[in-house]
Simulated scan of single mutants.
Amino acid sequence: MVHNVNITGVGIVSSLGLGIEEHKRNLFGQVDAIQQRQFTNNEHILDSYVGIVEQNLNVPEKYKNETKNFKLAFLAFEEALSSAKFNFKNKEQRIAICLGTSLGGKTSGQEALYAFEDGNYDLEEEMFEKRSLHHIADELIAYHGLVASYYVISTACSASNNAVILGTQLLQDDKCDVAICGGCDELSDISLAGFSSLGAINIESSCNPYSLGKGISLGEGAGFIVLEKNSPRNYGKILGGSITSDAYHITAPKATGEGAAQIAYNLSDQTGILLDKIDYINGHGTGTRANDSMERAMIEKNFPVETKISSTKGQTGHTLGAAGIIEIINCILAMQEQRVPATKTLPSEENPMETNFIKNKNFNKKINYALNFSFAFGATIVASFLLKIKCPKKHF
């Protein structure tokens, strides 16, 4: 594998902030962006703790009636292009756009269904287009008049990690010159109902990754990174990516963590970097017992105590298709700051002697290599990245 894929631009919108600066400040400030909200659907009521983007999402007038998911993606996409100083005049560039999302525009269809059930049978003509998975990518390309190949990946919670892996491979195979990769998802009845039916939502408090295992807190957001082969790596470098499946259970990972460990060893083989050289892991860390105990087992068996682990879902919530890209951006920020952002959680009662997991207080550490894990439903698809970064703070 040729290790020449540089990160030249970054953009993010999350419950921690609009844009990279606000997100970074609140991430390391240990701001709790998860709040209690009540959701109703007919006679059903759900009290849940969620990471909501509450700020106004200022998009061009033509997009005012688009889904929130589109608006999140639009703002993150714009910031990523701006920070990369993207040259729209270079028509010879071969551009690939790789978008990961769980929902796409499905909330448009959801709202149309509710209207239909209320007796409003006049659906807007564009609804069927807006509800598609690819609509967001279509509009991002059209807005800038780009000539681009594009790919939309919907592998649940690993979607945006898979998008970055695909963009990396396209660059390495000389299929494009620039890959704009990321993901987006908004809070919706669809996601809330699905996870609630599984009993996977923590209804007592915000999620507590690597602690009590009482469930997740959903969130929303979007992120994009711009990847190029030969431009200066303002924000870091992608060294490798790998995808596999446990083929164990439709929603639960194999408790021993074998699938996740295989990903790590695949990356080590790709890059020639031993696992004991990895300084920081941003784990999936959902707050569910099945996920967190599996990650603990995998970390304990395969990484030294010097490798530090945290989950940032305790601040942003689980953003589904956007989780991987938001957390890889958190890895970039950890390297830039030379600090591990702490897991906002409870002290562990299950394993009080653990030293790998950083909780409730940021940890100063030299970070040369960082690894991001994302796990997903569907026989447990697993995706991850390995990065290296050397960049001055002036880029942020």
Rank of each mutant, 00 (worst) to 15 (best):
F77W: 14
N58M: 13
G167N: 04
G17N: 11
N56R: 14
L123S: 06
A334P: 04
N65R: 15
R25T: 06
A376D: 02
T288E: 05
V31E: 13
H23R: 11
Y49H: 15
S191P: 09
N291I: 05
F224D: 00
Y210D: 00
L346W: 10
A255F: 03
I326Y: 02
I278Y: 03
A148W: 00
V50A: 13
Q262W: 06
N69C: 13
K71R: 11
M298T: 03
N65P: 09
L274I: 01
T251R: 12
Y151L: 04
S348P: 07
L57W: 09
K229T: 13
G194V: 12
I20Q: 01
A252E: 06
S132Q: 07
V2Y: 10
G213S: 10
R339Y: 08
Y280D: 03
Q169V: 07
Y121I: 08
I367N: 03
H3A: 08
E111G: 09
V5I: 15
A323Q: 08
N302L: 03
G219S: 11
M127C: 11
S293V: 02
P341S: 07
S268W: 03
V13F: 09
I367L: 06
A322E: 05
A193C: 13
Q35A: 14
T101I: 10
A179D: 04
G223P: 12
Q262T: 09
N364V: 12
G167C: 10
P392I: 13
L346P: 08
K254H: 07
F224Q: 01
L81M: 12
I136A: 03
S206G: 10
P341V: 05
T286P: 06
S108I: 05
D47A: 13
A159V: 08
I325H: 01
N87A: 15
V53T: 07
G51V: 05
E139H: 04
Y114W: 13
L320D: 02
N65E: 14
Y150S: 07
Q110H: 14
K366P: 08
